[in-house]
Amino acid sequence: MRTYIALLHSIVLGEGRRVVMSDLKEVAEGLGYKRPRTLVATGNLLFEAPVKPLVEIETELERAFEKAFGRHVDIILRFAEDWVRLADGNPFLPESEKDPSNVHVRVMRSPLEIEVQGKLVGYCSRGERVAIVGGDLWIDFAGRASGSKLLGALTTRRLGIGTLRNWNTVRGLRRMAGG
C-alpha cells in the first residue's frame, strides 16, 4: 500500500452544486481505496491504495467521479512523499509565510518545460514572480491573485492539465502526508 494525494481541478458540478467531501470519500472507498480523508472542502483527497502507476489511479478516479457526479473533472495524483518534496521546494517560502494566500502552486499532470516560465513573465504586471520547480509552476502573486493578469494565462489550453493550490493547502496536505 502507498499513500496518494488526489487534487480535483474543480468541485463545481453546476450552478449552485458542489461536490461534498464525504461523497468524494465514498467514491474513493467504492474503488477499494483505504482511509480516504480530505483537507478543506476544495477537492483534496488522501488515501491508501496498492502501488500502481499514477495515470491508472487518475483514470480510475476520474471515471468513478464522472459516474457518481455526472461530470468529468481532471484529477491530478501525487505520491505522498512527492508532495512533501513539492512543499519543500517552495521557492517563495518567506512570502508564503507572510501571507499564505499570495503564493500558489499549479500542480501539473505533465511537467512544464522551463521555457514556459519566460513566457509567463510577460503577464506579471504587479510584481508577480513565477518559478518552475520539478515541473510544477510556483507563483508569488505579490498581493491578491484575483487582480492579476497572470491568472488568465494559467489555463489548461496554454499549460496543460493542472490545478492551483495556495500555500495553506500545500502545507496542510504536507502535514497530512506525514511531512
Score class of each variant (00 low, 15 high):
residue 1 M to I: 04
residue 1 M to L: 07
residue 3 T to V: 08
residue 6 A to W: 00
residue 6 A to H: 01
residue 8 L to D: 05
residue 12 V to S: 15
residue 16 G to N: 13
residue 17 R to F: 02
residue 17 R to I: 00
residue 23 D to F: 00
residue 24 L to S: 09
residue 29 E to R: 11
residue 32 G to S: 11
residue 34 K to H: 10
residue 34 K to Y: 04
residue 35 R to L: 09
residue 38 T to E: 08
residue 40 V to F: 15
residue 41 A to T: 13
residue 42 T to F: 13
residue 45 L to T: 12
residue 46 L to W: 00
residue 48 E to V: 01
residue 48 E to I: 01
residue 50 P to Y: 10
residue 55 V to M: 10
residue 57 I to Q: 01
residue 60 E to N: 10
residue 62 E to D: 02
residue 62 E to P: 06
residue 66 E to L: 00
residue 70 G to W: 00
residue 70 G to K: 02
residue 71 R to D: 05
residue 71 R to L: 14
residue 73 V to K: 08
residue 75 I to D: 04
residue 75 I to Y: 04
residue 76 I to L: 11
residue 77 L to V: 14
residue 77 L to S: 04
residue 77 L to E: 02
residue 78 R to Y: 07
residue 78 R to M: 07
residue 82 D to M: 01
residue 83 W to S: 05
residue 83 W to E: 02
residue 84 V to M: 01
residue 90 N to W: 01
residue 92 F to I: 07
residue 92 F to A: 03
residue 94 P to Y: 06
residue 95 E to S: 12
residue 97 E to Q: 14
residue 99 D to Q: 12
residue 99 D to S: 15
residue 100 P to S: 12
residue 102 N to V: 14
residue 102 N to C: 15
residue 103 V to I: 10
residue 103 V to L: 06
residue 104 H to C: 04
residue 104 H to E: 13
residue 105 V to K: 05
residue 110 S to K: 14
residue 110 S to V: 13
residue 112 L to N: 06
residue 112 L to R: 04
residue 114 I to K: 15
residue 114 I to H: 09
residue 115 E to N: 11
residue 115 E to F: 13
residue 116 V to S: 07
residue 116 V to R: 14
residue 116 V to G: 03
residue 117 Q to C: 04
residue 117 Q to S: 08
residue 118 G to S: 07
residue 119 K to R: 14
residue 120 L to G: 06
residue 122 G to I: 00
residue 123 Y to R: 07
residue 123 Y to F: 11
residue 123 Y to L: 00
residue 124 C to V: 02
residue 125 S to W: 04
residue 127 G to R: 11
residue 128 E to D: 07
residue 128 E to A: 02
residue 129 R to Y: 00
residue 130 V to R: 01
residue 132 I to K: 12
residue 134 G to D: 05
residue 135 G to F: 10
residue 136 D to L: 05
residue 136 D to C: 03
residue 138 W to Q: 00
residue 139 I to G: 08
residue 141 F to Q: 09
residue 146 S to W: 15
residue 147 G to M: 13
residue 147 G to Y: 15
residue 148 S to D: 11
residue 156 T to H: 12
residue 159 L to F: 05
residue 161 I to L: 09
residue 163 T to D: 07
residue 166 N to C: 09
residue 166 N to S: 12
residue 168 N to L: 13
residue 168 N to Y: 13
residue 169 T to S: 12
residue 170 V to L: 14
residue 171 R to I: 01
residue 173 L to F: 02
residue 173 L to K: 08
residue 174 R to C: 05
residue 174 R to K: 14
residue 179 G to Q: 01
